[in-house]
Nucleic acid binder design. Structure first.
Lengths: 126, 126
DNA sequence: AATATAATGCAACTAAGTTGCGATAACAAA
DNA sequence: TTTGTTATCGCAACTTAGTTGCATTATATT
């Protein structure tokens, strides 16, 4: 079932993410690749890449969906549980490779946690 | 400027939040009060209550906007920086009164942080 | 080359949230 | 109480990120 095919859109998107380590929003990818691919295609390829553990996704401060490369994820399990950082000046979003332990909460079961930190990135924090 | 008026919609919304400590999504409030108020009104009243430091808002796991009562906020400063919890079974969302220190990140300035923890709430975690 | 089916493009749709504007209602001052 | 100012409301139309259905095309397998 569902072997991912090496199509032009897949290549193009992977290429975008291989330009750097930054996260890229679906919106930005659609604008960027507008002349080459339909937005539906882009959404679907992103879905597939996420399912396959190539990318992971999260929501930025405005509720937009962002994607970034995975490190150590597989199709069966996304191990990437790290904070994301969104720069309030330049808008850049990336993954932070720091460990943020989620405290145990009495009488509840913690399954996932999303942490979005906002502030000034290295370039903007002079 | 801008003294908030005690209108019926303001009263109705405050009343909803005084039913308990849970967070309520804008969507839910609109559905709930649909017969009494226009959705535009509800969005605007929520905005005003947030500006006045009565409510604070955050995004849930699907990017929907949620509101909850503030504790110790003022119009000038929202002091409420705490994690929020969304139950994956019953959907309930609330504020956690635990302190989560944001680690210092080298060469960046941290200004805000949003933490959303998902799992099972007290009622659903049997 | 033939086949099966994954992937694409297009158009139409969904849903949360926003905007403009004329009408209405709070509230303070007379 | 009445009046005047202006905050607030309701409505309709809009915006925008993301989704869906379906006919067509491309990929990979035999």
């Amino acid at each position: 079932m569902g072997v991912i095919r090496k199509t032009k859109s897949v290549e193009a998107l992977l290429n975008e993410f291989n330009q750097g380590q930054e996260a890229i929003s679906a919106k930005q990818l659609i604008e960027q690749l507008d002349s080459k691919f339909n937005k539906t295609t882009i959404y679907r390829v992103l879905d597939r890449l996420e399912e396959d553990g190539v990318l992971h996704s999260f929501l930025g401060k405005d509720g937009l969906k962002w994607y970034a490369k995975c490190n150590g994820c597989s199709a069966s399990k996304h191990k990437d549980v790290h904070p994301h950082f969104q720069c309030l000046k330049c808008g850049k979003v990336d993954c932070l490779s720091i460990n943020m332990p989620i405290p145990h909460i009495p009488n509840r079961k913690v399954e996932v946690s999303q942490i979005l930190i906002q502030g000034l990135c290295e370039q903007c924090f002079v």
